[in-house]
């Protein structure tokens, strides 16, 4: 379970997030919508530890992680541009987190192959990011995040670069991944159809404030 407690983020002369509080139960797919520039990405960056809030707390399974480094939080993050590592092959992208944790080569290989199979990207394992399509990149970014076995997955408009036909396929994939891995997901999107198809919990952010919409 992720709990945000009175999170505030201020920059000189402007308040981006104002006392944002919400609790997202475990194994829930939460969808966050809101106009451009309302603070959605900032909120995700604070949750995964890339920004320190001006005030407030982030609690993960009841533990206050506000002052922890991003690597200590166990939160997966897929940004809007997917941010694949340039120069690393798909196999290395997916194996990045397990390798850092000292997973033995044999187990690492198994884990990479299992995830690649789960995401349907086994034939792409030896490709560089430049040679992947938008949909393939998105799958690699998701597989890379899941390889770290996160407790919470943050997705920042991960489907925005996909065309309509690929988007439907990606929505089905996200649903399957969330259910198979019993993940808690917070997904930022501008698409109402995407939100309706995926979200158990719908949140709306307006001018730095969070408003719960409905429980699906």
């Amino acid at each position: 379970m992720i709990q945000l407690d009175q999170l505030t983020w201020k920059v000189p002369g402007r308040t981006i997030l104002e006392k944002v509080s919400v609790a997202i139960p475990a194994n829930t797919y939460a969808v966050l919508m809101g106009p451009t520039g309302c603070g959605k990405t900032t909120l995700l960056e604070i949750i995964c530890g890339l920004r320190q809030p001006t005030s407030g707390r982030v609690l993960l399974d009841g533990l206050d992680v506000t002052d922890l480094e991003p690597r200590e939080r166990g939160i997966g993050y897929v940004p809007q541009d997917l941010a694949l590592f340039p120069g690393l092959r798909v196999r290395e992208q997916i194996g990045f987190a397990p390798k850092l944790r000292g997973v033995a080569p044999e187990e690492l290989n198994q884990r990479v192959n299992r995830l690649a199979e789960q995401f349907g990207i086994s034939p792409l394992l030896d490709r560089l990011p430049d040679l992947l399509s938008g949909g393939e990149k998105q799958r690699v970014a998701l597989a890379r995040a899941l390889a770290a076995q996160p407790r919470l997955l943050l997705l920042d408009e991960p489907l925005s670069a996909l065309d309509e036909s690929m988007r439907a396929e990606a929505v089905a994939l996200l649903q399957r991944i969330q259910q198979e891995n019993a993940l808690t997901v917070l997904h930022v999107t501008h698409s109402s159809s995407e939100a309706a198809a995926l979200g158990h919990l719908h949140l709306r952010m307006v001018a730095g404030r969070l408003e719960p919409e409905s429980q699906g």
């Binding site: 960056e45 995964c48 530890g49 890339l50 480094e69 991003p70 690597r71 939080r73 939160i75 997966g76 993050y77 897929v78 940004p79 541009d81 941010a83 694949l84 590592f85 340039p86 120069g87 690393l88 990045f96 987190a97 850092l100 944790r101 890379r144 995040a145 770290a148």
Partner: peptide
């Protein structure tokens, strides 16, 4: 872009490891 380094931090890197494994190869 600093984004890949940010993602590397969430995947378990220290800032130095993000520099070494992600920023320098790029």
């Amino acid at each position: 872009s600093s984004r890949p380094e940010d993602v590397a931090l969430t995947l378990g890197c220290t800032r130095f490891q993000a520099l070494w494994h992600v920023a320098l190869p790029a």
